[in-house]
């Protein structure tokens, strides 16, 4: 009986599959190289969502538009306190309006001045590694979030990373139309502080 001769299939490279695979690899490498090129700061920023409680901050930066911002820090306490003492005879609404008008008049900064104020804060943070600063940035929806990122990256660029930040959406009008603004005395640890409180609700 004659043996049947085995037919050996000719092995070919499957070009279609090969090209598919190459393109998949190409897309993968393109995407990963884009991720690598994304600035480190942008990827490392973790923006927590706000909660419906009383917020606390040392410095408030309210972005108004691309050119102006409203800045409140501990020095505003003396301004509010002096208005409360000087105009204590006014109605609560009149007192609120006077305080807010004064703050809006004195504390709206151009971005150059804001930069100077933030540089001052950074200098304080650099001089005292043990100090902790918290900055709340409020930004209206229509202002590009890149403006906030710019502020955050500027503030975070400190050797001791002792400036922290929080971000919420909001307009200057929310502050100017707040329910009440007044000074409060609070004991925190062994320190007694004269803080400004703004009630929105």
């Amino acid at each position: 009986m004659a043996f049947k001769k085995l037919k050996r299939h000719k092995e070919n490279v499957e070009l279609v599959s090969l090209i598919d695979m190459i393109f998949i690899l190409l897309v993968f490498f393109l995407v990963t190289s884009y991720v690598i090129r994304t600035p480190l700061e942008e990827r490392s920023l973790y923006i927590p969502t706000p909660e419906n409680t009383l917020g606390r901050t040392q410095i408030l930066i309210q972005i108004i538009d691309g050119e102006k911002a409203f800045w409140l820090d501990e020095t505003a306490s003396a301004v509010v306190s002096s208005i409360e003492e000087e105009f204590g005879y006014l109605s609560p609404e009149g007192l609120r309006t006077r305080i807010l008008n004064t703050l809006a008049e004195n504390n709206v900064y151009s971005f150059e001045r804001l930069q100077q104020a933030m540089q001052g804060l950074k200098s304080r943070a650099q001089r005292d590694p043990a100090a902790r600063f918290f900055v709340l940035i409020r930004c209206p929806d229509e202002v590009p979030y890149a403006s906030v990122l710019h502020l955050i990256t500027f503030l975070m660029d400190t050797p001791y990373r002792n400036i922290r930040y929080g971000c919420v959406a909001g307009r200057l009008n929310d502050i100017l139309q707040c329910k009440k603004i007044y000074t409060v005395t609070e004991d925190i640890g062994s320190r007694r502080l004269k803080n400004i409180r703004i009630d929105f609700q």
């Binding site: 480190l40 917020g55 410095i59 306490s77 919420v168 502080l193 400004i196 409180r197």
Partner: peptide, 30 residues
């Protein structure tokens, strides 16, 4: 250089959630 995703939360300080009901701005020490 990239930080590995699993290391990000250990190395980066996560800021606290800000409150929106009202606001207390720290004043000077009395």
């Amino acid at each position: 250089l990239t930080i590995a995703p699993e290391d990000q939360y250990e190395r980066i300080e996560i800021p606290p959630r800000p409150g929106v009901r009202g606001l207390v701005i720290t004043g000077p020490r009395i």
